[in-house]
């Protein structure tokens, strides 16, 4: 029936998943280095918007040289391709600079559960992610990835990663 036929533009708009829906999908894309948190938990997905039939996503790098950045971009594209989205433009946005304040509460809890102490404004871990002890010492300012430092618990004697606060 001609009266219910949608214009092409409207049809495109109806078929487009909402940015919230896309954010939900991206919340299932794991960080390649720390697979217990998603790229959304990490706070690096800064903007999602449609421009006609093209999906624009702005991503911010955690650290300038983090090699995971390009893997993350590829994982995001693959995940959205799997949802049937093909016209995707990923843009790198460096300002405002990424901050660990953007980690989600869910992400922080998942980190600790995984054995990585979440970032604290005080500049060091609050407690050992393993035994929850609070007598801690710094082993090295840098850890296994750019975003982490190496600490040790002097109660259970286990070394652990601390997610640096920046």
């Amino acid at each position: 029936m001609a009266t219910t036929r949608l214009s092409r533009r409207k049809l495109v708009a109806v078929m487009r998943p909402s940015p919230d829906q896309i954010r939900d999908w991206l919340d299932a894309v794991p960080d390649p280095e720390i697979p217990v948190i998603s790229v959304v938990d990490l706070g690096i997905v800064r903007a999602i918007h449609w421009e006609d039939d093209t999906l624009n996503i702005a991503i911010t790098p955690t650290y300038s040289g983090c090699p995971a950045t390009s893997v993350i971009a590829m994982d995001i594209e693959m995940a959205l391709h799997a949802k049937g989205l093909n016209k995707i433009v990923l843009k790198q946005q460096i300002s405002p600079a990424w901050s660990t304040d953007w980690l989600s509460e869910k992400g922080r809890a998942a980190l600790e559960n995984y054995g990585i102490a979440p970032p604290q404004a005080a500049g060091g871990p609050e407690r050992c992610p393993n035994c929850k002890g609070t007598n801690l010492e710094k082993v090295s300012q840098f850890g296994s990835t750019p975003c982490k430092a190496l600490w040790r618990c002097t109660e259970c004697l286990e070394p652990f990663d601390y997610f640096k606060c920046i």
């Binding site: 790098p61 650290y63 300038s64 040289g65 983090c66 090699p67 090295s140 300012q141 840098f142 850890g143 296994s144 750019p146 190496l150």
Partner: peptide, 12 residues
């Protein structure tokens, strides 16, 4: 590890 991380930041 610290040196490699520093180098990585600089190259980034």
């Amino acid at each position: 590890i610290a040196l490699a991380n520093t180098a990585l930041d600089l190259i980034g």
